[in-house]
Design a protein around this nucleic acid. Sequence first.
RNA 1: GCCGGUGUGUCGGAAUGGCAGACGAGACGGACUCAAAAUCCGUUGUGGGCAACCACGUGUGGGUUCAAGUCCCACCACCGGCACCA
Length: 821
Amino acid sequence: MNNYNFTAIEKKWQKYWEDNKTFRAEIDKTKPKFFALIEFPYPSGQGLHAGHPRPYTAMDIIARKRRMQGYNVLFPIGWDAFGLPTENYAIKNKIHPKKITADNIARFTEQCKSFGWSFDWEREVDTTNPDYYRWTQWLFIQFFKNGLAYKKEMAVNWCTECKVVLANEEVIQGECERCHGEVVRKVKSQWMLKITEYAQQLIDGLEDVDYPERIKYSQINWIGRSTGAEVDFTARAVGDISTDEDVLRVFTTRPDTLFGATYMVIAPEHPYIEKWADSLENIEEIRQYAEKAARKSDFERSEIVKEKSGVRLVGVNAVNPVTEKEIPIFISDYVLMSYGTGAIMAVPGHDQRDWEFAKKFDLPIVEVVKGGDIEKEAYTDVEEGVMVNSGFLNDLDVPEAKQKIKKWLKENNKGKSKINYKLRDWVFSRQRYWGEPIPMIWCEKCGWIPVPEEELPLTLPEVDNYMPAENGESPLSTLESFINTTCPVCKSPAKRETDTMPQWAGSSWYYLRYADPLNQNEFVSKEALEYWLPVDWYNGGMEHTTLHLLYSRFWHKFLFGIDKVNTPEPYLKRTAHGMILGEDSQKMSKSRGNTVDPNILAAEYGADSIRLYEMFIGDFEKTATWNTAGIKGCKRFLDRTFGLADILRGHESREYSDSLKGAMHRTIKKVSEDIEQMKFNTAIAAMMSLINEIYDNGSINCAELKDFLILLSPFAPHICSEMYEMLGFGDGVESETGDLKQVHDEKWLDFDPELCVFDEVEVVLQINGKIKGRLTIESGADKKALLAAAKENEAFCAALLGKEIVKEIVVPDKLVNIVIK
RNA sequence: GCCGGUGUGUCGGAAUGGCAGACGAGACGGACUCAAAAUCCGUUGUGGGCAACCACGUGUGGGUUCAAGUCCCACCACCGGCACCA
């Protein structure tokens, strides 16, 4: 058998698809639409790597199948092109990032096209194109106008290497996600987006979408809802009744344990510390502790997890609102200013951290819930346990006590029920060049004013040096011509914001732009929106679950709220693929030298072989280890597919032959169902089994080969198109020559469930669960017939002879098991 | 520490509670060839036996069941996420 000439074939069909705009998507209301989305790539200088083709081929298979099922498919591609690596490369090589980006996109485009993915290339978007980021800026202004973008002085994560502010989510174990530089805390004025306002909606919305449980679960955990109560304690200087009482508010999930609160702890950054400075005898010690805590990154703060540290505020005490006893106040870095109110009531009997702290500082531990041994550890069980030492709460169980104390707090104006979220607002400012300029103007008289929408895009100006300024500000801050402007409201001199947006900005709404990428008047037209949205199926990486996926859901919910989009959720269905590791089972990286260039392999084995291999490598949802040797099996399978032409018996047959009919129907069923569940590996295995059976059969007829090509075409579209044309398949299968007939114009195949079953099945005969023989019988035989047939089996009978039968288990088409004594 | 996931031949991996190892890779033997590659045929979990066959076998230990890779309990290892969240 000759190997097929994949180089020529793949070029030919790629050119055909491009010339004929085969995969162009246009609104057609006579057809159901299907919006298939992949995570658009960051066009890095390294080019496509082995990880890209896996998710892209997977969605391509689904998109191609949907087209054959009669859907009008939108399957777009674009470039998430702002970002640090490009900027760092620009700084190092003194090349404009725009130029680098253009080169990278050109390279990526060529590489993507050589895999034959059925993208609509006319809808390409590029987040760095002013026609695109004009609308990213416009969207920011909508956030601002609706009170969801605000500036805030805050301690931020500062990467000492990149000299840039990072979002909490970009800090990995105290290191910068990108450069692994040390991250410390630094106070800066930052633009923030109020994602917290959507915390509840982001949780609730998950009920209506088809996401895997593990994704819903991580998003819910990330948002971190907890229900409890805010309780107002009072605090005042010791022995000085003339001073005013201050209200020290805490958040607690255990208001039922209020009688056990024997001290309080506030965060080192708590504003009351300076307010109370005059009353505090040890203010210097307190300030020193606070300063030390501030210098530590969150990582370092959490590293000292075993040993609790803190300083007592000498001179100010608090009063527990129910016991009315005076209790001490401490500062400690285990209390975070960013969560709750920055202050806690400490209940050492029933919270392990408080318990450890109390042991260290020798503070009273009071049992208020019976059930544990608080000498040894805190008793935290809320399920069973009865209140004690708790005044009017005594003898209630925990849930009852929670209800009663909340009522009491409300009636006595000492607090109220409260829901808290771990989710924090999104730091949206970057002091970098290669990002969308934030379209805001600072006017001494009018405050922050957005750039008038008709002046958008606010384009990135040319600079000589892309390096952030030494003080950490954006390179734009050194550009007088950019900074100086006039206030759009009062026309007096004003200054522009010099921060740019984070990379997540452009990717938070790109799926919307795909619906209407060339629109110059709106970010997307109503008509396009109503036809194409929401996205029907979005596949991407697990690593974006709590970042990109949550951010874009937030933007979408905001837009839904101001009536700019028509659905509450952007994505109906989300799936996640596993990563591809290098041959050494390590994450692929240039420094490890274990990267794989899929284009080099495609040149050697053919794009269809690589597509197939990446789908065959293992369970799509799990990480997989690359093994170049494994491609051979897929290449052989395609060679054998091409060889089917040699054993084709004429062009007459319109129906499957008796010898292959069952196998054909079974494979159609298996492949159809497996694609829907993204079990591509077993779908391919089924087709391999079928081809083995065809070769065992010795020949194939025209109906069988044509349908085999239809089935395989989403996986290996080039070879299938070629054979389809070569063999003259199409409307009339008898044609010998054929015009350019395209396999993807065919209808996807149906199967007959009745024909999927085998005529005969082998049934296992067991005695006490041990296999004693096998029996071939027509499939579907009922229990009685099966048992009777089993008892006629000689070896089986012999084993049963003279034994007492206790039980007979018969499973049709599977087994007969007889339990004997 | 907490949460989630995974653990099956030499390797990648299959198995609605019903014949473990589909499919592929690799290896070995053979055919073709001057030879090699490619291709084709066969063998390939472990131990025992000339054989048909027998015993054992899905991280470890227990349990449920006529029947467990699959369900339950405890543990171990690895991978990923989170890091005192009141």
